[in-house]
Structure formats: structure tokens, C-alpha cells
Computed example of a mutant assay.
Amino acid sequence: MNSNKTILIVDDSQFNIQILSDILQEKSYKIALAKSGEMALEFVKAQKPDLILLDIMMPDLNGFEVCKSLKNNQKTANIPIIFISGLDKSKDIVKGFQAGAVDYIVKPFQKEVVLARVNTHLKLNETQKKLEKTNNELKKLLDEVKYLSFHDEMTDLYNRRYFENELDRLSNSRQLPITIFVADIDRLKFINDNYGHNKGDQYIKAAADILKRSTRSEDIVARIGGDEFAIILTESGFEAAKIIFDRIRANVIEYNNRNQLVESLEISIGFSIKVKDDENIDNIFQQADEMMYNNKGKNTTLKKYNFSSY
């Protein structure tokens, strides 16, 4: 392991550099040298060492200033820094730790102490990196599980579970008016029976894409059944619903004109609006569902819908 680790020694004293180099080379560490704080910062910009042995008393930037600079940079903040100094006053040691150092070695150097502390902090840093990698992988996995639990695998829309959770959340919401759309693909069974389920899946994906493109980023679009979809619009009444409705119909027409299909894609749509606190959100959904089924298979245009109740 040692042969892969680079240690940067920062000291304006050639005598100290030589002693530390001799000690560390016994364990086959790669050694890099900087005789000033500025040289150290330039080196770290070009190549990140695995650990830094940093002198405190230097003519340009002192060790405390170099350490703070490195710790304030996200790219170098995790490099372990061990201060090396003839200063052994407790206030200087505390100041070193406050600057971000992980340890403190007092001159004159004792080989066993130097090697033990260097080895310890290299191992700790390596372990920390592994833990961070594991945590990131775990977080990514948990995010993926959460995403899959609330999204439909085929269409990437929200699934029925998420939709029903949102209905529960909005049941007592004051984000009125709340509009619920229900949409269903016409004649999908006919397409599946005559052209195969792979072809039917293409229609489901196309419908999902149309509904997603027809709505706003804040709207909830879900696949709640085989060929059934639902949309929730919060703080949106009839005018917003009409706009969404028009977009869906226009996008369906565009899709049919643009593609050579075995059967035209038709989507039946119904919607209902909750305008009062005491209205039951489940009833609103049922009203939207009934409206959709009443127009099922009629290739209904906007003008044929009865909006007189809004």
C-alpha cells in the first residue's frame, strides 16, 4: 500500500526535509517536497498528495494559513494534514487542530512516532473514502428503490401508489381548486388482440408521453392501470383544465398525423374539479372517471364535452 501513497513534506529547512524523507523512504512512500507555503499550494493544485506533513513556521505563508487555505477548498479539504513544528505549547497545538489538522508531530522527530502517525492517518483517510463511497452507493440505491416504488416502469410516469398517496395528501388540502383528469386509451384490447402486446405497449408509451408533454412541470401525471392515466392539477380550475385538455387533443392529432400507425391513437378524457373544502376528493376522481367513460370510444372533441357545470 505504501508505494502508492504520496506524502508532501512542506518545510523551509533542508535539514528537516532530509530527516523526514529518510524516515518515510524506509516504508517506500512516494515523497514530494515544497520549501514554502506557496509552493505547497501550487503543488496541491497540480497533484493531490495522500497526506501532508506541514511545518508551521515558514517565511511566506505559515502552516496555519496553508492549512486553512486547503481546508477551505472542497477539492483539497479531505487531505489529512499533520503539523510538524518545534512549537509544543498547548495553544499552538489547539490552533493547529482548529485550522483543520488531524495530528501534530513535535521536533526533533522520532522515527517510530512519525511512521506510526503517518500510517494511522493514511489508513483512516482510506477508510473514510471507502465509507463515503459505500454511503454514496447506498444512497444511490435507496434513491433508486424510492424512485421505482413510486414510478411506473414502462412509462416512467408516477404509478398508482403515488397517485393514491397524493389523493390522500390533498384530501384536506386548501390548495383549491384541485382538478383531476382521468384518461383512457380507446380500443387498446383490439390492438393487443390483433397486433400483439408489444404494439399495444407502444400505444401506452405514446399516450404517456403525450400526457406528460401536455401538462406543466408541477402537475402530477400517473399511470394508474393498464391503459388508464390520471392527472392532478393543484390550485387550478376550469381555465387551466381547458388548456390541458386542448393540449392533449392537439398532441394526439399531431401524433397520429406524424406516425404511420396500424390504428389511430385515441384517448378518452374526463375531468372534475374540487372547489370547496367539504367536497370529497375521491368523489371528484369518480366524477372524472365517469365523465371519461361516458365519452369512451366517441373520439370526442372539446366542443362535444359538456362543461356547463363549471
Rank of each mutant, 00 (worst) to 15 (best):
A230C: 08
S214W: 01
S268K: 10
E239C: 09
Q260M: 14
E239K: 11
S268T: 13
A230E: 01
A240L: 05
D227Y: 05
I269A: 04
L211N: 02
V275F: 13
S236C: 04
N256F: 08
F271S: 05
A208C: 08
N256V: 01
K212M: 06
E218K: 14
V275W: 07
L233C: 05
S214C: 04
I243S: 14
D246V: 07
E263A: 15
L233G: 00
D219M: 02
D246F: 12
L211I: 00
V275E: 09
I210N: 09
R216V: 01
N280K: 11
K205Y: 04
R258T: 14
A241Y: 14
V252W: 00
D219I: 04
D209V: 10
F245Y: 15
S214F: 01
F271G: 00
A208R: 03
F245S: 13
D278K: 12
K212S: 06
V221T: 10
I232K: 05
I220H: 04
E239H: 07
I248H: 09
N259T: 10
I243A: 11
I244F: 15
K205R: 12
D219G: 02
G225M: 05
K212H: 12
I267C: 00
V252D: 00
A222H: 05
L261V: 01
I248P: 00
A207E: 12
A250F: 03
E266Y: 15
S236N: 05
V252Q: 04
E235F: 02
R223K: 08
D209M: 12
L211Y: 02
D278C: 09
L233W: 06
L261Y: 00
S272T: 02
V262G: 01
D227F: 08
N256P: 06
F238T: 01
K212L: 03
N280P: 04
V221G: 03
T215R: 11
D227E: 15
I269Q: 15
D227S: 05
E235V: 07
D209E: 15
A222T: 02
